[in-house]
Design a binder for these strands. Structure first.
Lengths: 206, 206, 206, 206
DNA sequence: CATGAATGAGCTTTCATTCAT
DNA sequence: AATGAATGAAAGCTCATTCAT
């Protein structure tokens, strides 16, 4: 077989097709969810034949894995760009929270697709992705920990367990993503602003 | 049709059968996940025929909805029992956090089944359950809000946005449930203890 | 899953269905050959849905293996019955050759189906069946060897290499089965009669 | 269309390509069998694109037919060379048997490819090749018949039905090719030697 | 109350072939 | 002469559901 697969070099046109397919996959995931996002539905959305998807991706798993990769990297760039534009740990923390909430508001389609894959896809051994502890560091997680750590080292922040606080912050952010009763009644700016205040209280030295 | 459905009155024996099926569904969901949890697999686990499931539940959706109901009520009881055994808002908050984390550690099977349904099941209009803003109040959410509110009224707690703090707390709890890198490296007691400290800082009056 | 599979006990009605499916498979194999004998074609021939075949057989391999078993046992019975009705090695040898050729003439459909499976089916490791040295003794092969051996022991036959002669006889028989130019121009009785004369010459003591 | 097909004149470079493709087809047939020997697999083995195969052969049938032709002519040359080097019918008969068995031992890959095509390929009317009575004389069959006939005419051999004996000899040879239990326990020299003895007994005048 | 039997719809994947470049 | 890109058709298989018994 000569099919282009995720880890091989691809031609420009091939790369364009792959992007188009990934984009169609994301839209389909958002619109009808992972379970109904069959190759046929994705192909239909992309305006191509299912066989062409098979030509550009080894199989459905390959397509979903690649799509997940794209989604994760897109979200990471979005947040990291905005965070790293700041200088002090306090400002970085604020930017991190605002960007994380903001991404959800800005690109809801991507967010839903991400969730759909994360909670449906499974490894060949049938281990769900959401149970996997990514061998590779999650760049968003480590960025947050580094911000908190830097704040402590610079004596800008007080004493706290970095990993636990980082988790709490990430959880508070994700809660907004998942909880519709929340995100449909409080706008993202207000929520992130409140969250910033809340966690400033925790990090601030007495 | 004479089939017993979720909202009809059921005989004792029928009720026993339904429980058995729900139990089998939970175990199957935990072991192989929602997508592979076919009627056949659940029937096999229960040691009965698939047709018998269809006899006791209108369809797969009905079974999953009922199972979800059972899971939610089990978790609620677990947490509420332990919370309501306390008197002061501070103690209630501590109990709430510890019980929520503890449930995850105590009944991992139920927790996984809960997640599997929540993130896979969809309404007839294809709306995912996780996007639904439960029409009925989520008793765990409102309990937490009431604790925080009571603390403020009794001047035990300071000023903060109750809904946002409640969300942050719930998010911090769920983060432990979902983040394997977290729950596999920090034991539940330590995490909840740290979380309690963290949020005590937030609620405590200056 | 509760599907009946080849090695489980089956109900009467299930057994009847399996027979019907096998019969349809044999006819389909004869008519359009292994490659085109899809589940759909076999189901069509049997007047049932493809899913019903899947219900009664684990997969296509299971169906083909079971069909092969039936075909081999049918052919064996046919030949062994006629052979074992004879008493002396000479008569047994004649009966063996005549019955083997006769089976081909009597049941051409079965014969073709047998060939189709034998030369197309492959193990899970992709080893073709025709390359397999049956772990279990082939009853037709061993019967022939025993006839020749008995003839030598009773001094009815002279000296010869039993295995080689047995192979030559089986080859001469199969040649008639496979070679259309042969079996379409010489009738089976003549061919077997000539073959008997030929091999009588070889076994007869000088 | 300008595509070069089997019956047209071809350029030298085109002929080289065709040979390369045929060689790849043979290896693929031997390694994974006819059914899995897709154009893609053959192209991969040849290190070219599938489209190039389509360019040099009308379709898959054309490729397989041509490959079969090559295989048959290779086998014929092998056997005929060795047979025609002999002078007397007895010696020719010995050479024929030894060469036929020897080819199988010498070129197992070719032999397997030959079998795979013979038992899988079908005409446009879906008639399997193995059921075809070649319109053209099979040179190996007629050579054997001529040897036997010549032996009778020269009074070197006795009386027997030439066509039947020829078939028996060919069958005895093919049995060694197909029967793995045979060819894996008796070496080709021994088997052909025994076969020669056996059939010498048949042809020798009393 | 319980089951085995049966189906239609849908799934992913593979294939030979075509076509523009 | 050679290829990458693309397709329609068909394959085997699984599933939720229905129905007669």
């Amino acid at each position: 077989m000569t099919h282009k697969k995720t880890d091989e070099k691809k031609s420009f046109i091939s790369e364009a097709r792959r992007s188009q397919i990934v984009e169609a996959a994301i839209m389909t995931l958002d619109e009808i969810g992972y379970i109904h996002a069959s190759m046929a539905q994705i192909a239909k959305k992309a305006g191509i034949s299912t066989a062409l998807i098979s030509y550009h991706f080894r199989d459905k798993k390959d397509l979903m894995d690649y799509t997940l990769l794209m989604l994760l990297s897109d979200m990471s760039s979005y947040v990291l760009e905005r965070t790293q534009a700041m200088v002090t740990p306090r400002d970085k923390l604020r930017a991190y929270i605002e960007a994380s909430i903001g991404y959800h508001a800005d690109k809801p389609t991507y967010n839903v697709a991400l969730i759909e894959i994360l909670f449906h896809a499974r490894t060949a051994d049938n281990v769900p992705y959401y149970k996997l502890d990514d061998d590779e560091e999650n760049p968003l997680e480590s960025e947050l920990q580094q911000i908190l750590l830097a704040g402590q080292e610079k004596k800008e922040f007080g004493a706290f367990n970095v990993r636990v606080l980082a988790s709490a912050i990430r959880g508070a952010i994700d809660e907004y993503v998942f909880n519709r009763k929340l995100n449909s009644t409080i706008d993202p700016q207000s929520y992130s602003s409140e969250l910033v205040n809340l966690f400033y209280r925790v990090v601030t030295r007495d």
